[in-house]
Design a protein around this nucleic acid. Structure first.
Lengths: 188, 188
DNA sequence: GACAAACTATACCGATCGGTATAGTATATG
DNA sequence: CATATACTATACCGATCGGTATAGTTTGTC
């Protein structure tokens, strides 16, 4: 593993578990067994390093979600794939996903928010597009894309939060329950 | 307004809009027109001041929610009241609520998280209790309290996030839509 | 071997961090 | 008037912050 990768890996670990502001550049360099100028050689600034990490991982999530959200005239199946995509990503990058969610609610002027909000919109766009196509099959869904995408993402993130706090497992049974409740509500 | 209140008010404003870590004690004191020792006289530490603010406001939210969640054998009505309670609080304390949500996803070892997670559990408990009582009327709801509370809160916070980003208004029509979708899903 | 580009370390920069030692001024109580 | 308590300010503490000036070392190219 070359030095650049070493820095990325150590920084991801530190930022994820302690937060952007709470981690110093000195600590990252130390943890990677290198000196600060080396870090600045590769990434230019603390924020540059941070953006590199965030963009990399969120682009991967976006790719996974795009693959999952290809609508093939089977809405329950597509919904299931979408939930699984989020759950898998959250499980493979649990502390990073926690940080991602935290940054979604960062102050609008903060660097963290600016970095992350663009990707949030991209993820949202994928869901919107899927529901738009689905509305061709289900006429009653017209005009409700935004509500559906919002609710679905809210549900998913609420469950992921419980998972991150150790309250439950993101297994297949939960996926099914989430999809079912999203589709049919609470009275069935 | 005495000096203690002045400090609380200025700190709330600064913490809410810029985040706990990004605001210095010196800046708070300056913004309140006082000196640091005065601040430390009243609150002991930066964290002490922060906890005072957070506890105060989250206790208010908890009280509002408890009043809203009194189950009177009319589930749609109770759900409506709950959503309104959250929406009202988020509107009256918008930047604070944003920070609250951000702290919900802070690193588990951070001070912010410890302060806020206790209140999150209290809010959650109120919802759980309400759904437990409702299950006396709707037998099919048994054993699904946790799922319902999670989904409801996830939905509410997802909409509040859009509101905080200026994408929509938290009006009565939205309340109705949220309650309806929570109850009946997407096919109606 | 000459030279440039990429890479790395020591040692430092000014600024700011949370917090405090010290001293002073009010205010209330005896 | 004396004394104690509550409150406030000046000036400072050591530590750490993000970032860099300087210099040295490797590596590939001609």
């Amino acid at each position: 593993m070359d030095n650049r990768t070493k820095i990325l890996s150590c920084a991801l670990q530190l930022f994820s578990t302690r937060g952007y502001e709470a981690v110093g550049v000195r600590e990252i360099a130390e943890s990677a067994g290198l000196s600060k100028p080396t870090l600045y050689h590769y990434f230019g600034s603390k924020q540059g390093l941070f953006e590199d990490i965030v963009k990399n991982l969120l682009l991967k999530l976006h790719k996974d979600l795009r693959n999952a959200a290809i609508y093939d005239n089977d809405l329950p199946l597509t919904l299931t794939k979408i939930v699984i995509a989020f759950f898998n990503f959250a499980q493979e990058n649990n502390s990073f996903y926690r940080m991602h969610l935290s940054m979604l609610f960062s102050p609008p002027e903060s660097d963290s928010f600016k970095v992350v909000s663009k990707f949030q919109e991209m993820l949202f766009e994928v869901l919107i597009e899927m529901f738009t196509k689905a509305a061709d099959n289900y006429g009653n869904m017209k005009g409700r894309h935004l509500a559906f995408a919002t609710t679905l993402q809210g549900m998913i993130n609420a469950y992921i939060r419980l998972y991150l706090n150790g309250s439950l497992e993101l297994d297949d049974e939960l996926v099914h329950k989430v999809v079912h409740q999203f589709q049919h509500g609470i009275y069935t």
